[in-house]
């Protein structure tokens, strides 16, 4: 997996709560069995109205760009589709800063090298507002120090599980880690008895 540590970038604001995975990527794009450019389907029905680009939608406004998406509470709620994390990554976002995240999405993002940074609703709203006012606002994310700041006044720490942090910092693959645990897994299987 690609490593992440420090990111410095402008950001795209998405000043909404409860952005669900059906909006992030509508179900009709989930039919592929192989690789697909999921980035092209990111927020498809918000980016396009009647197949024409909606110039009002934040992602479509030229003045907003960057590797960071900033949004409000409960981002990624709804379906467990990992396609949502794939779409965000393939579109070019490396970090999602949000008031809060839905649990399954947070995990899917982490498993794809997209860093979820949770800062609470009030700070997220302030940050969205700053970016809307000044699209050149830079966001600085430091995973090692678990800190996010911007060249406006916001600076805050964020939480991340220590193991997940190491995975992102050093590009560790969880799958290899689990496969190496096979002896422990077999030992538990011998011990576990559903009807004990």
């Amino acid at each position: 997996m690609e490593k992440i540590n420090k990111i410095e970038s402008t950001a795209v604001p998405l000043p909404l709560d409860n952005v669900d995975t059906d909006q992030i990527i509508p179900a009709r794009f989930l039919k592929n069995v192989e690789d697909f450019d999921y980035g092209s389907a990111l927020f498809r029905d918000w980016r396009y109205a009647e197949d024409k680009i909606d110039p009002e939608f934040w992602l479509n406004q030229d003045k907003f760009s960057g590797k960071v998406l900033v949004t409000q509470s409960n981002f990624g709620c709804g379906s467990s589709r990992e396609h949502a994390a794939w779409a965000i990554k393939q579109y070019g976002f490396k970090v999602v800063v949000a008031g809060s995240f839905a649990d399954i999405f947070r995990n899917n993002a982490l498993n794809n090298g997209v860093l979820p940074v949770e800062i609470g609703l009030e700070k997220a709203k302030t940050l969205c507002k700053k970016i809307l006012e000044n699209p050149k606002t830079k966001i600085f994310v430091d995973l090692q120090d678990q800190k996010v700041s911007s060249n406006c006044e916001i600076e805050t720490k964020f939480e991340i599980d220590l193991f997940k942090k190491q995975c992102l910092l050093y590009g560790i693959n969880e799958m290899e880690f689990l496969n190496q645990l096979k002896p422990d897994i077999e030992a538990l299987e011998a011990k576990i008895n559903l009807y004990a």
Partner: peptide, 14 residues
């Protein structure tokens, strides 16, 4: 769970 985790369960039942 997500698809990466489906792969983990297929692979290691954990």
């Amino acid at each position: 769970i997500g698809t990466t985790q489906v792969e983990q369960v297929l692979s290691a039942q954990s």
